Measured scan of single mutants.
Amino acid sequence: MAEAPPRRLGLGPPPGDAPRAELVALTAVQSEQGEAGGGGSPRRLGLLGSPLPPGAPLPGPGSGSGSACGQRSSAAHKRYRRLQNWVYNVLERPRGWAFVYHVFIFLLVFSCLVLSVLSTIQEHQELANECLLILEFVMIVVFGLEYIVRVWSAGCCCRYRGWQGRFRFARKPFCVIDFIVFVASVAVIAAGTQGNIFATSALRSMRFLQILRMVRMDRRGGTWKLLGSVVYAHSKELITAWYIGFLVLIFASFLVYLAEKDANSDFSSYADSLWWGTITLTTIGYGDKTPHTWLGRVLAAGFALLGISFFALPAGILGSGFALKVQEQHRQKHFEKRRMPAANLIQAAWRLYSTDMSRAYLTATWYYYDSILPSFRELALLFEHVQRARNGGLRPLEVRRAPVPDGAPSRYPPVATCHRPGSTSFCPGESSRMGIKDRIRMGSSQRRTGPSKQHLAPPTMPTSPSSEQVGEATSPTKVQKSWSFNDRTRFRASLRLKPRTSAEDAPSEEVA
């Protein structure tokens, strides 16, 4: 009796068929016929556990003709996506030579605008209408194809895939403007070719909807975003200037109206006075309405000098805001240009540092100066060695804690006790272990408590650290204090090793 083939788990290929790579489910599931010992083939499952149809090819690079078809379809799909992405970037994010197409579109729109203006002049109306009709045909074809291509290429973005995504893309403001202008152009052409009475009025009214094509030149909205950011950044200043200017306008108009309503027919109503105030304070000055009385002229002159300053403030605020924003954008561009080279330089330096163990090129690091100058660790070890030599091999803490019996001779020589300023008595072995921070803190506390006492003391002649007598400086308080830590004499004296002298005989010792 033939044995059933062993159940295979995992992703390994079956024996005897090495080139074939078959994806098997996580659990080997066989058909009921196979479990019962029949000759049925096992049921194939996909990666998600769903059964595959009987005629479906197995996924994998070596699955025969199905694999070749899959490779061809995958390559075609990649080319399709690449083309779609390229078209989308050309239309929505132009760079380099892609601006040539947008310059061509701008020339078409500008020519249409010029011809629309010439069509309103009686001398050039006939020729402009003929040229404009031909140009409209060209623009309908160009913009119609462009609109379709834009909607198709938007599928390269995830949020615009599918018919719902394309509809979302078509609802964008600039796409809506394109659609309105396209419909208006078709209506103008249809009305112009019919030759009816309505054609002339339709051409004159709907052609100027094509002015909206100038708005579509900035599809990404960079200028509007820049203007919005400047207004938002200086909103408080703008609101303040406009508010005060509006108050000056209504008060000036009302007072001039009261002064001129009886003697001047131009100011017969408050609305006429508001019109005069707006034209005057905005420095336009049509001259259609002028005050005639001396009181009205004085009020107009005073409020004009006051109001023009507030009406001119928004222009200066926006101008300075634009300058600052442009400078910030230039700085951001320079930062973006330098970020990648800086990151590459840091990575290269780290690779060199991690692979080169000698690091002989590091001549400006802490390790280099640590090898030249005595390190703080060596100074600490030197302090501890000196203290243990004086205390008979014991550390200062051990000397303080060691009990001394009554009447027993002390094995240590008597030492002079010292007192730290602002604290109780402490171990004499710690007097010379006072660090730089303690010395600086002690000097600052003395300056806070009594700076007036220092200038009363007789001035001391500054001497070099080499000429100081070591026996005289029994305490860190003898170090000359200065008002600034930048004094080199104080810094050098604080680094010197001060020996400890006994109370009975204080021989001067120098520590090399």
Rank of each mutant, 00 (worst) to 15 (best):
V326I: 00
G66R: 12
P15S: 02
V230A: 15
R43L: 10
F143L: 10
L83V: 05
V87I: 04
F174S: 15
L281F: 09
A252S: 08
A202V: 03
P6L: 07
F106S: 04
R81S: 06
S205C: 04
F311V: 00
L249V: 00
W163R: 01
R43P: 04
A184G: 14
R161G: 10
F174I: 14
R219P: 11
G192R: 15
R44P: 12
L83P: 02
F106L: 00
V29L: 07
V90E: 04
R43C: 07
F254V: 00
G66V: 01
I239V: 06
A187V: 12
D262G: 05
V149I: 08
R168S: 03
Q164R: 10
N85K: 01
W97L: 03
L113R: 00
L345F: 11
P61L: 04
R159G: 15
V100L: 03
Q329L: 02
Q329P: 13
H292L: 06
I134S: 01
K225E: 00
V298A: 08
I180V: 07
A191V: 15
L133H: 00
N89I: 13
R20L: 03
A191G: 02
A18D: 06
A68T: 15
R72H: 04
G10A: 01
S74W: 07
F110L: 04
D17G: 04
V183G: 09
S268T: 08
Q33R: 11
S65P: 07
G245V: 01
G60R: 09
K289M: 10
V149F: 00
A25V: 04
L135V: 02
A343S: 03
R216G: 08
E123Q: 06
L212M: 03
I105V: 02
A202T: 15
F104Y: 07
P341R: 15
V188F: 00
L115V: 08
S63F: 05
L58P: 10
L26I: 04
P51H: 09
L58R: 04
F174V: 15
T280S: 03
G40R: 09
C158S: 12
V149A: 08
R95S: 12
G162E: 02
A98G: 14
S65T: 15
P53Q: 03
W294G: 08
P42R: 07
S67P: 02
I211S: 00
I121F: 07
C158Y: 08
D17A: 10
S116A: 01
L113Q: 03
A128V: 06
H77N: 09
A21V: 12
G46S: 10
E92V: 00
C156F: 04
K78M: 14
F169Y: 02
R216L: 04
P59S: 10
C175G: 05
P15L: 02
L345V: 06
P53L: 08
M1V: 04
R297M: 09
A233G: 09
A56G: 13
V188I: 09
E22V: 08
P19T: 14
F99L: 08
R168H: 09
C69Y: 07
G60E: 14
P61S: 15
V114G: 08
Q164E: 06
A68G: 02
A2G: 05
G49A: 04
C156R: 04
G245A: 15
P42S: 08
A312T: 13
R8P: 03
A2D: 09
L227V: 00
V117G: 15
A76T: 12
W242G: 14
G16V: 01
P59L: 03
L58V: 05
F335L: 09
F167Y: 01
I346M: 04
S31T: 04
R81L: 09
S205I: 14
V24L: 09
A312P: 02
L9P: 07
A191E: 00
P15H: 07
P14S: 04
V176G: 09
S205N: 14
H102R: 02
V298I: 03
A4S: 12
A56S: 09
G39A: 06
C69W: 13
Q122H: 06
A241S: 02
R220S: 14
F182I: 09
F246V: 03
W242S: 09
L212V: 06
R20G: 10
S201Y: 07
S153C: 06
S73P: 10
L127F: 05
V138A: 11
R79G: 11
F143C: 01
A28P: 09
S201T: 13
I308L: 05
C69F: 08
A76P: 14
S201F: 00
R171K: 07
V183A: 09
R93W: 01
L23I: 03
I134L: 04
L203V: 12
F182V: 12
R220L: 06
S111I: 10
G10R: 11
V142F: 05
A76V: 06
P57S: 10
S74A: 12
V326F: 15
G319S: 15
I317F: 03
M1I: 12
L305I: 11
R204H: 14
I250F: 02
V256L: 02
E130Q: 04
A315S: 05
G195V: 01
I189T: 13
F99C: 13
I177N: 00
V151A: 14
D218Y: 04
R213S: 00
A312S: 09
L9F: 02
L305V: 08
F303C: 04
P14T: 03
V326G: 02
E35A: 03
S41Y: 04
Q71L: 11
C131R: 10
A190G: 01
S229L: 13
E32V: 04
A202S: 13
S65A: 06
H124Y: 02
T290I: 05
S265T: 03
V114M: 07
L115Q: 04
K172Q: 00
L45I: 13
L47I: 09
Q164L: 08
M206I: 00
T240P: 00
L108Q: 08
N89Y: 08
G70C: 06
Q84E: 03
G34S: 13
P53T: 02
R72P: 04
R81C: 10
L132F: 07
Q125E: 06
Q194H: 05
V231I: 12
R7H: 03
I177T: 02
V103A: 08
I239L: 01
S185L: 01
P5T: 05
A154V: 11
V109F: 06
L133V: 00
C156Y: 02
N85I: 09
G155A: 05
A36G: 02
Q30K: 01
V114L: 05
L115M: 08
V188L: 00
L45V: 13
G34C: 05
G46A: 06
S74P: 03
H292Y: 10
A271G: 00
G66C: 15
G221S: 00
